[in-house]
Design a protein around this nucleic acid. Sequence first.
DNA 1: TGCGTGCATTGACCCAGATCAACGGAGGGC
DNA 2: GCCCTCCGTTGATCTGGGTCAATGCACGCA
Lengths: 246, 246
Amino acid sequence: MNKPLTAIENCSSCPIRHRAVCARCDDDELVELNAIKFYKSYSAGQTIAMRGDALDVVASVVMGTATLERAIEDGRTQLVGLLLPSDFIGRPGRSTLQYDVTAVTDVTLCCFYRKPFEDLLVRIPHVQERMLEMALDELDAARDWMLLLGRKTAREKIASFLMLIAKRTVHPDGRVLGDTSRIELPISREAMANFLGLTIETVSRQFTGLRKDGVIELDGNRSVIVPDLETLLLESGDDSDGGPLV
Amino acid sequence: MNKPLTAIENCSSCPIRHRAVCARCDDDELVELNAIKFYKSYSAGQTIAMRGDALDVVASVVMGTATLERAIEDGRTQLVGLLLPSDFIGRPGRSTLQYDVTAVTDVTLCCFYRKPFEDLLVRIPHVQERMLEMALDELDAARDWMLLLGRKTAREKIASFLMLIAKRTVHPDGRVLGDTSRIELPISREAMANFLGLTIETVSRQFTGLRKDGVIELDGNRSVIVPDLETLLLESGDDSDGGPLV
DNA sequence: TGCGTGCATTGACCCAGATCAACGGAGGGC
DNA sequence: GCCCTCCGTTGATCTGGGTCAATGCACGCA
């Protein structure tokens, strides 16, 4: 069966394949998805969408890093989502965006027109099911994040963040959490501060503190080497049973 | 058509009706739902379920208030969900619970056996759709909550919490946010502290402060009178465009 | 009527992290 | 080469909210 699936086949980071929404799609369904999808790129620093914008597409991150932010007028800003490859933006069933979306590196999105995507969800139950699963996973992540924001110390917040990035990083060879204990930070100190509910000065001081205590080594501003991940985990205040966290 | 729908018809606070999942269910579908559902009650203070418990039911709150909590071993606790009537507990597709669920008042749940409920989701797309919508609403709420935890002052946190409860309260006559500006607090000072990432002492001091400044009046420990909701809204630090939040 | 227990309030003090300010180093344009 | 800008680090100081401790108050129970 040779149908024109190349574009979507090649979209290996697209959640529709990568996170297995469509592991169960048959060829006809893939063609349908393919028909309503297009790619769009943004350069680092660019605003992808702003709170209140009408949103007639949903999208998934193929490449790069974007952030979801909520701000108060006086400038205080809280990051409420970190969008890495395979993460989903937008919500079927709501037409305006609640948050500011910004590209922090160059970003490529795989977009779907919202209306036909919604129609498709009704027709193909297992895609709908996958959307629900993704939303609930995000909800769990948001709740862990709430524990971090409400109850953890600055040092624990930094350690937790490093563990989070380490766990989410997929190495070129496909491994996750490999013995290469190098963590590439996808965001700036400022974005980290907004992620963790801290100031950039405190973030910086905690990095210095962890370095002086031998928990981490710094290699430039965006690269952290962790001699022993177990030590870092202890610092994070997480008592998770070691189960898979995503 | 006289089918035995009385039980589910009477379950007016059940989200399956109340939040309109099944506004679109036909009689046969209601019978199906009815077949896998049962009620369960808990008394105030009782643990409904603990983190790690196997979870073979999903449920919605019919009456009372329950909390979803995440704790670290040293005792620090963060409330990650406040479950009021019509809220949903549990997630289709995952068998173990991530959080502690506690009844803070007497609680009645409308429970569905998870497996048949999941089967039903696949068969009845608009219920699946409603589940997704509810999950995404919760996600939005969680993100606003993250802004509160990460960036708001103690006073703003208290004011935001009061606004949240006011907005979610449905008065006996069906009105929401009526001119009766009395807010009944569903939880103790301790639970509020764990909700807001504060200590009970700080919660208490902020209540006193708001009272001394004439923003609120206290009537016992569980009842707050707000002369002017607009003033309270200003204190909350929310710049929401006044749109419906819920 | 007094006592115990569990919440809430208040006071005194302290400290983690914010704030304000100076400095350093890596590009990048010319 | 030089300068400029952006980002991160470090230092000095301040303060909001935490900590520790005492007190108040309502309710149940004997």
